[in-house]
Design a protein around this nucleic acid. Structure first.
Lengths: 214, 214
DNA sequence: ATCGCACACGCGATATATCGCGTCACAGAC
DNA sequence: GTCTGTGACGCGATATATCGCGTGTGCGAT
């Protein structure tokens, strides 16, 4: 039901990036992630610790105990891995931001539903007024996707896809900055939105044309 | 903040009573308590484990490890203590039930409050959707000031910015999916990247123009 | 009687680690 | 080219343990 916030290799890389800033222990990383993504998303311990274990097993981080804390530090191998994939990082940040926003929207809807059932339950409880009932939560997961790599003949294609990702990322960043600037003095009208939507649809069609035309 | 559910010696005794039924491990006790009191109240690990340690220290329960679980069993001394204070148990059960009820009322109030603000937010979102999507047949006249909240223009601008964010997000998602599909059979050339870059720059310029043109 | 204060207690926050489910990507089978 | 299984992965649930804050309780001093 709730789609994962981090795509397949993303958490691994992001953790490495956080540890590059400075050594941290597990709980600290959980908080750091929670902070960076508005508190709406908090990675669970079951997400962080297995990943850290894996990273240590791979030799990308080293572990050392400090009282009841377990401090993780990035190794040279870790820094190398990070350097090699530095470009993916900003893409990940944007992706996660998107996921979190979708998640927040989902939560809003869920709360609506939960409220309905709660109201029903309270009404029922008032009617009976002597017996109690039990409740049960729920959970699941879903999915998104992202970067693909690894071929040989398709290397160029992959590179191109990845670069498009970067271009998109940059474009979004720029437009956001532009809008923030102009929104403070002067205003952004719905017409801008409409225009943007139309133009992007056109761009998409044109780009697709270059793909199918050969 | 929230008043304790269990009065001073109550948890200790209740734990003993639960262990008299059968040996249990810590987490099991947490769940048992959560079950008995309607799920509204879940004692935290920080409540249970120190108490269990204390009980063991006093020799009222004995501890034994089973895999990653720590099973607690009542001792003769524990049964003696329980027999001596059997009378208090009913009182405790009632007391706790009352506490939980009060707590549930508090939650209900809180949720109600949260719902109010949520409703407001949803209403706002609905207004936004209506304003930008529908080209409203009549009704909407010019006068934005006087009644209603001040800074309507600012709010509209903010809403527009948010929506642009959505459009960007969606666009990126779509393009990524498109590329993914076409990248498997057929390929993505650097020309597509170049084209995309150029077209996006143009779009950005055009959108910016709608902002400064007024 | 009552004042006050050490001590026990309840509990959320802090901290760590594993298990099992569902999903996704990738490789090899076809 | 499509189908498939399998392994890695994200993540909630399970499981345990400690720290520190606020409060209530009981006892000795007043």
């Amino acid at each position: 039901m709730t789609p994962p916030v981090f795509a397949h290799g993303s958490l691994r890389l992001y953790l490495l990036a956080l540890l590059e800033e400075r050594p941290r222990h597990g709980y600290e990383l959980i908080q750091a992630l929670s902070d960076r993504f508005g508190g709406t998303y908090s990675p669970s311990a079951g997400t962080i610790y297995p990943r850290l274990s894996k990273l240590e097993e791979e030799g990308l981080v080293s572990k050392s105990t400090d009282g009841r804390k377990t401090v993780y530090e990035i190794t040279d191998a870790g820094r190398a891995e990070l350097d090699a994939r530095r470009g993916e990082l900003d893409g990940i940040e944007n992706e996660v931001t998107d996921s979190v926003r979708r998640l927040a929207d989902g939560v809003r809807a869920e709360v609506n539903g939960a409220m309905r059932s709660l109201r029903a339950e309270l009404a029922s409880a008032a009617r009976e007024a002597k017996r109690s009932a039990t409740k049960a939560p729920a959970s699941a997961s879903g999915g998104t996707s992202s970067t693909g790599w690894g071929g040989d003949a398709r290397a160029e294609s992959s590179r191109a896809v990845h670069e498009i990702d970067l271009v998109l990322s940059e474009f979004r960043q720029q437009l956001r900055t532009d809008l923030r600037t102009h929104a403070s003095h002067g205003r952004v009208t719905p017409e801008s939105v409409t225009l943007l939507r139309a133009r992007l649809a056109q761009v998409r069609a044109d780009v697709m044309a270059t793909l199918t035309d050969h």
